[in-house]
Design a protein around this nucleic acid. Structure first.
Lengths: 238, 238
DNA sequence: AATAATTGTTTGTGATCACAAAAGTAAGTT
DNA sequence: AACTTACTTTTGTGATCACAAACAATTATT
């Protein structure tokens, strides 16, 4: 079997496969990361057999992973049964950001009563890690740690129901955030986590919501000016 | 092959299969409805082969449908790889309701600017249908129409991103709403849709959010007093 | 009789095959 | 040259099989 490259070649970062997880799970994580990091261009048709060839697995696990990612809105199944990373528009991007703000500020407020000393120190640790990464201007690291910070905050609520929804939004925004930030040379990022931390310590739900909303908004702004984002998003994947 | 009934027997309402949809899609819809209408008890282990036998299809489409439903949080895959309808707790139920209010009121406000004359009349039609169903005390009909009303409202926004998340929440609450309402004999339901309609006509986003939030809250209250819900939810599936 | 070891069964996972629909390609027509 | 038509290839879907892990039941052991 020869290498197929019907359209643009796909490069997917492949990590070590752990025998403790099923092949389907590994494929799922691999493809999820590929989507999240913008390694797959929006609109590029993904076929089961091609991915199976790239990942060196049988078509079956790929099939299952694709269906799962589609159910999480990370991929889109068209009427023709073609699977692809959904194309983005400026309006949709905006809606995703607003949805993030609405849901995450709600999740933060709902988690607040459950934050005890241990979780507070865990958040503090993540906060200082972010500060370090910021000095080193390590973009990928900042993004990852930022996500971890948010996740840690929301999961303090033991009766968690919003995190899967939030992760779905991250997954949909991910590729375009990464693509956009990779185009920039200078990054301005005000650290709103400190504000969030003090709000948490004071158990001030409203202040926490403000801080989270600001953090998300500036995380977007961090990806560029609205004009840049607009121009970039609409042209992604062409 | 004999009838299996390892535990409690499962009765799933089976609809006609349309040849224009794939078997997987049909199985997905059938199982989704079964979950939504509380036909599958929480905690009951679902096996691929058993469902395949019940639905008279091969295991493959069931496999895919189960994975998709699990990705939508309608089903839960345990560590043991066992699949089941997630068990509910009063706290989780409460979190789901609060999440509904937060997200749906946001979705409503975001949809408001896009509602034109056609959509308004469509909403009005649904509203009067609900009024009719309410006089006939047709519970199932009311629930379905109520969902259609909310869906119609949110989908007015052409850059829709929240509906899949909202549907996921409906799916998680569905079984317990149905189970709870089926226990009641008397139902009190104030129609908040009229309030929503006037808010829409006035393009008053804040009033609309209030109306939607109230509608959701009373839809829950409609399912019984908090004590009843609590007692019922915790015992469901035993 | 209670617990541990063993055997038999069921189950999810993954691989492979068959097939119809879709997409791509080449030849033929206007 | 633009479009249609016929043919070839590719692709998703679904069925079936093999296998190891999980589960259930039975037997053996203390």
């Amino acid at each position: 079997m020869q290498i197929m490259d019907k359209k643009s070649p796909i490069h997917i970062t492949i990590s070590e496969r752990d025998d403790s997880v099923t092949i389907t799970q590994w494929v799922y994580q691999t493809l999820r990361n590929a989507v999240m990091y913008g390694e797959i261009l929006p609109g590029r048709a993904l076929t089961i057999r091609e991915l199976a060839g790239i990942l060196d697995v049988s078509p079956m696990p790929v099939r299952e992973a694709l269906r799962q990612l589609a159910a999480e809105n990370a991929l889109e199944i068209q009427g023709n049964r073609r699977v692809m990373v959904p194309k983005m528009t400026a309006m949709k991007f905006s809606e995703l950001c607003e949805a993030r703000i609405a849901i995450e500020s709600h999740a933060a407020a709902r988690a607040l009563p459950y934050i005890d000393r241990d979780q507070l120190s865990q958040l503090r640790a993540l906060d200082s890690l972010i500060d370090e990464a910021q000095e080193e201007k390590n973009l990928a690291q900042i993004s990852t740690l930022n996500q971890n910070f948010h996740r840690a905050l929301y999961t303090a609520n033991p009766h968690q129901v919003t995190l899967p929804l939030i992760e779905s939004l991250w997954l949909q925004l991910g590729p375009f955030m990464r693509l956009a930030t990779s185009q920039l040379e200078e990054h301005y990022l005000v650290d709103r986590h400190n504000e969030a931390m003090t709000a948490i310590e004071k158990k001030d739900a409203f202040a926490l919501q403000i801080a989270i909303a600001a953090d998300i908004r500036e995380g977007i702004a961090f990806a560029g000016t609205p004009e840049m984002l607009h121009a970039f998003i609409e042209n992604a994947g062409t």
